[in-house]
Write a protein that binds this DNA or RNA. Structure first.
Lengths: 340, 340
DNA sequence: GGAGAAATCGGGAGCGCTCCCAATCGACGG
DNA sequence: CCGTCGATTGGGAGCGCTCCCGATTTCTCC
C-alpha cells in the first residue's frame, strides 16, 4: 500500500489545480468536459479516494448515517427483525455512498454518554432511530436539538419523520380474515402497550370486530411482551375462555402460543385458528405453518435511509411520514387451507 | 444547540493554551495537577467534545472500528448469532470509546467498491471480519495490505489474528457425551465444508468416535448448510440408516432435523438422541429442549474488539490467536435426563 | 544564591479538503 | 482589433486538532 494521494497530487498529475479536481470529484459544474475527462482518467488510474476526515472537517458533513438501537430493543434484537432491517439500511447506505455507524446502548450510563456524543453530533449527518417506546426521552431530545433524524416505526407526534408498516391495517386485515372464515370468539395476544405498534395492532383488532358487529370480550384480550415465553403464558390464560381463534401480534409469541396449545392438547387450526404477525422465516417452518401478516422490513430500512438523505439534502420542512402496506400470507394455522 | 466549542475556546475559558487543553483531553502527562483540574472543570461545564473529524485528520487515526460482514454471511444473518456478536462488539466499542462502523456487502459490485473503500482505509483504524469462507479473497487482500484486522472465526493461516470458540472440542465434547450415554451408531449433520468451523466440528465428531474405537460409517455423515431446511433434508436422508443418535452442528439445523423426525414418527430422544450446537434461545424452547454446545458468542465479540485495540496500540507483531472453550448444556434431546 | 536540569506550557506548522473570490481565458459585438 | 461578459481555473483562508520544539517556570543541588 502506497501512501494515500491528495487532491493536490492528483491535480499535479492531471495538470490542473486542487480546486478543479475537487470540482470533478464532487460533480460540480464549471469544468470543461475535456478537463473533466482528463482528471477522471487520472483518478481512475491512481485509485484516488478523498480523505473522509478532511472532507468532514472542511465541509461540515460526515457522510455518515448513525443507527441508534436503545437498550429497550435489546431483547428484540435476538429476533430476525433487526438483522433484516439492518440489511436494508446497509444496502441503501452503500448505494448512496454513506457510511453506517452503529450505536447500541446497553446501560443507562451508555445512554447518557450517548446524549453527549450525539449532542456534539459531529459523528454523523443524520440519525435513524428504532424501537423507541412511547414517550422515549431520546425522541424528545432529538426533537429539541437540530439533529436530523428519521424514526423507523410510527410516532404519534406529527413533527417526527417516520417510516413504518401499517400496523393498524395489518391487524385489521388479519382479524377480518378470521371473521370471514366464520369465527366469532376471536382472542388476541398483544405486545406491550408501551409499544405503539402493539397498540395499533390491538386497535386494528378492535376495529375489525367492531366493524363486523362483534362484541369485544375483555377476557379475550391478553397483553404480552413479544417473546415466546410471554406468548406461552398469555395463550395458557386465554385457553380458559375458549376462543375459536386467536390473533397473535408477533410470530415469536405465536410460537409460544402454539406450544401452549400443544401442551394442553388443543389442535391448531382444528380447535383454535391462529393468525400471526411478522412473517419471519420461522413462520413457514412452524407446526402448522403460520398464516401471518408480512411486513416489508428490509424495504423499511431502505426507505428510512432514503428519507433521511432526502431530508439532509432538502431540509426537514414538511415532516416525512411514510406508512407502508402489509400483506396477509395465508398458510395453515388459520385453517383456511382446509376449507378451500 | 449552541455551536460546538473548540479546543482554543476551552483554553481561553480556562486561561491556558490549546495545547494544554489537548494534553488534558488526551490524558497525556506533563500538566500540573492544578491546571488539569481547572481545565477539566471547564470541559465538564461546557460539555466540550473534541471534533472527531479534526482529530482524525490531524492525528491519523479515526477511533472507528469497522465490522465487515460479506455477502456469504447474509443467509446466516437471519439467525441470532450475528445480533449477539454485534451486541458484544458494540458494547466493547462503547467501553473503549471507539465508534462502530458497519460494512455489509450485498452484491459483488459492493465487494469491489469495498476494496476501494477499504483500501483507502481512512474510514477506520482496524477491521473486524466475520464469516469468511475458506480461502476468502478478502483475507488474502487484507493480509497483503497494511490494514490491521481480526477475524471472528478461526483461520488456518497462523498470520491471521483470530478469535473463535473451540469448534473441535465443542463437537468432541458433544459426541463423547452421546457415547457415554451408551450410543454407538452416532450420525452427524455438518455445516458446509467450505466453512472451517463446520470442518472442525466434523473433525471433533470423527476424533471422538475414533478415540473410543467406534468405526465411522460414511452413511452416517450428512453435509448440510446450517439452515432449517437443510437440516430437515439431511435428517430425512439419515433416517434410512437408522442411527441411534445424531450430532447436529447447529441449532437451526436441529430444528429442521426435529421436524423431519416428527414427520417420520421418530421420537426424540426415545428413538434417536440428539445433541446440537450453538445454544441459541430457541434451543431451550424446542420440543424437546435441545442438549447443545454453548458458544460464548457475545464474549467473542468483546474479545474481538479488545484484541483489535490491543493490536492497534501495541502492534501486530505476534499474531493474536484466541480460542475460547465451549460448554455442553445438557437438556432433554439427548435423553440424559431420563436416565439420571 | 545561582547554575543546570526538569517540569510545564505556548504557539507554529500542517493534516487534506471545501469555500470563495480573484485571475485568466474565450468568444463575440462594435 | 479591442473591450466586455461569461465560462473556467487557480489559490488563499481556514475547518479543529495533533505534533513538535522552543520558551518559561520550577525545582534541585552545591
Amino acid at each position: 500500500m502506497t501512501a494515500a494521494l491528495t487532491l493536490e497530487q492528483i491535480g499535479e498529475l492531471a495538470g490542473v489545480s486542487r480546486s478543479t479536481v475537487s470540482r470533478v470529484v464532487n460533480e460540480q459544474p464549471g469544468v470543461k468536459a475535456e478537463v473533466r475527462e482528463r482528471v477522471l482518467k487520472v483518478i481512475a488510474e491512481t485509485g484516488y479516494q478523498p480523505n473522509p476526515a478532511a472532507r468532514s472537517l472542511a465541509g461540515q458533513r460526515t457522510r455518515i448515517i448513525g443507527l441508534v438501537i436503545p437498550e429497550t430493543a435489546q431483547i428484540l434484537f435476538t429476533d430476525p427483525y433487526f438483522p433484516r432491517l439492518i440489511q436494508g439500511i446497509a444496502q441503501a447506505c452503500n448505494a448512496s455512498d454513506y457510511a453506517l455507524s452503529l450505536f447500541l446502548f446497553h446501560t443507562t450510563d451508555d445512554e447518557v454518554a450517548l446524549s453527549k456524543r450525539i449532542a456534539q453530533k459531529q459523528l454523523f449527518d443524520g440519525l435513524l432511530i428504532t424501537a423507541t417506546y412511547i414517550g422515549d426521552p431520546l425522541v424528545e431530545y432529538l426533537l429539541s436539538s437540530d439533529i436530523r433524524f428519521v424514526q423507523l416505526g410510527y410516532n404519534d407526534n406529527p413533527q417526527v419523520n417516520c417510516v413504518d408498516a401499517d400496523n393498524f391495517s395489518g391487524a385489521y386485515q388479519a382479524v377480518v380474515h378470521l371473521i370471514r372464515l366464520g369465527f366469532r370468539r376471536i382472542a388476541t395476544i398483544t405486545g406491550p402497550m408501551s409499544n405503539l405498534a402493539a397498540v395499533h395492532r390491538k386497535d386494528g383488532y378492535l376495529q375489525a370486530l367492531g366493524d363486523r358487529g362483534i362484541l369485544v370480550e375483555d377476557d379475550l384480550v391478553a397483553t404480552s411482551d413479544y417473546t415466546q415465553e410471554g406468548g406461552y403464558q398469555a395463550m395458557t390464560d386465554l385457553l380458559q375462555h375458549k376462543p375459536e381463534a386467536v390473533f397473535v401480534a408477533s410470530d415469536a409469541m405465536s410460537l409460544g402460543a402454539l406450544r401452549a396449545m400443544r401442551d394442553h392438547g388443543v389442535s391448531v387450526p382444528d380447535d383454535i385458528a391462529l393468525v400471526s404477525y411478522d412473517d419471519l422465516p420461522l413462520a413457514l417452518l412452524a407446526e402448522p405453518a403460520l398464516t401471518t401478516v408480512r411486513q416489508p422490513i428490509k424495504r423499511l430500512g431502505i426507505l428510512g435511509v432514503e428519507t433521511l438523505i432526502d431530508i439532509l439534502r432538502n431540509g426537514a420542512k414538511p415532516p416525512r411520514r411514510i406508512i407502508l402496506p402489509t400483506e396477509l400470507v395465508v398458510r395453515d394455522s388459520c385453517g383456511a387451507g382446509r376449507r378451500s
